[in-house]
Amino acid sequence: MRLERRSAVGPDRVWVRSVHHLPSGAGHRGLVVVLPGLGLPGYTLPTAEAVAARGVECAVLDVPGFGSAHPRSSRPDIEAIASVARHWVLEQAGRRPVVVLGHSTGAQAALVTVLGLQSKRRGVALVMAGPTFRPEHRRVAQLLASTPLAYRLDRLGEIRVKEVLRARVDLVRMVRSGLRDAPESKVAGLAAPLTVTAGVADAYAPSAWLDLLASSAVRSVGTRTSLLAGSHNNLYTHPHEVAALVALAMDDALAWA
């Protein structure tokens, strides 16, 4: 079952839209929270549905808010998105174990989210899927050259045009924020379990970049790297493979409770 909620969170009580896929029956007591790439939630919904099919509730956060006509919930940058997501988890997840799954620029925001959560609660794990802007790609020319290869097994129809039209120039602001970020440095402070993954044909996130992120997480209680089928947008094209990996991360969250 799918439903939408709006929740006021954080000290400023900003309204956050979330799209929930609920398991049939009793399900698992855990919660998977998804932070989409570039703030475009629509393409992540197949993975949310696949997670729910495995018996776990999955909530896609529409932050900064490109997925609807409601007022924005944050600025279009990594730190602001992470702040809203952190407050959402603290106020909405209760005592449930949580996996924060971020994809693309959402992986960068998910890392900052979990860094802020781990001092306030246990029972949380991080999945960085298709993490963007490895050091070589922080130069625009090299990033643009890799983009056709990153999406080589994807189609334009996987992205919802209405979301892009709502975002407009804020997509550029999102990219600029990601380019200023250095997740390979930030991940050194991560204590929570970490899974790093990408599609095997994703030129944004080759295995060397995944390995660097995992090896840099020197404080983490456990790390995992995994190459799955597809290219950059495999949350849409191979949702069941992603959901199976998220299930392993949920086990990690339970073990770290």
Results as ranks from 00 to 15, higher is better:
Ala26Tyr: 08
Gly27Met: 02
Gly27Ser: 06
His28Pro: 00
His28Phe: 00
Arg29Met: 07
Val32Cys: 03
Leu38Pro: 00
Gly39Ala: 12
Pro41Asp: 05
Gly42Phe: 13
Gly42Tyr: 14
Leu45Ala: 01
Pro46Ser: 07
Pro46Met: 06
Ala48Asn: 07
Glu49Gly: 04
Glu49Met: 03
Val51Phe: 00
Ala52Gln: 05
Ala53Met: 07
Ala53His: 04
Gly55Trp: 00
Val56His: 11
Val56Ile: 13
Ala59Val: 11
Ala59Gly: 11
Leu61Met: 11
Val63Glu: 09
Pro64Ala: 02
Phe66Ser: 02
Gly67Val: 06
Ser68Gly: 08
Ala69Ser: 14
Pro71His: 11
Ser73Ile: 00
Ser73Cys: 13
Ser74Cys: 08
Pro76Arg: 02
Asp77Glu: 15
Glu79Gln: 14
Glu79Gly: 15
Ala82Gly: 03
Val84Met: 07
Ala85Phe: 08
Ala85Asp: 08
Arg86Gln: 14
His87Cys: 08
Trp88Tyr: 14
Gln92Pro: 02
Arg96Ile: 10
Arg96Glu: 12
Pro97Asn: 09
Pro97Ile: 06
Val98Glu: 03
Val98Gly: 09
Val98Gln: 05
Val99Lys: 06
Val100Gln: 10
Leu101Ile: 07
Leu101Glu: 00
Gly102His: 05
Gly102Trp: 01
His103Tyr: 08
Ser104Ala: 12
Thr105Phe: 03
Gly106Asp: 10
Gly106Arg: 11
Gly106Ile: 02
Ala107Asp: 08
Gln108Trp: 02
Ala109Thr: 01
Ala109Leu: 01
Leu111Arg: 01
Leu111Phe: 13
Val112Ala: 10
Val114Gly: 12
Leu115Ser: 09
Leu117Glu: 07
Gln118Cys: 05
Ser119Phe: 04
Arg121Gln: 14
Arg121Asn: 08
Arg122Ser: 15
Ala125Trp: 02
Ala125Met: 01
Pro131Ser: 02
Pro131Met: 03
Thr132Asp: 14
Arg139Asn: 14
Arg139Phe: 11
Val140Pro: 02
Val140Gln: 14
Gln142Phe: 11
Gln142Tyr: 13
Leu143Lys: 05
Ser146Tyr: 07
Ser146Arg: 15
Leu149Met: 07
Ala150Cys: 03
Ala150Asn: 04
Arg152Asp: 12
Arg152Thr: 13
Leu153Met: 10
Arg155Thr: 15
Arg155Glu: 15
Leu156Ser: 14
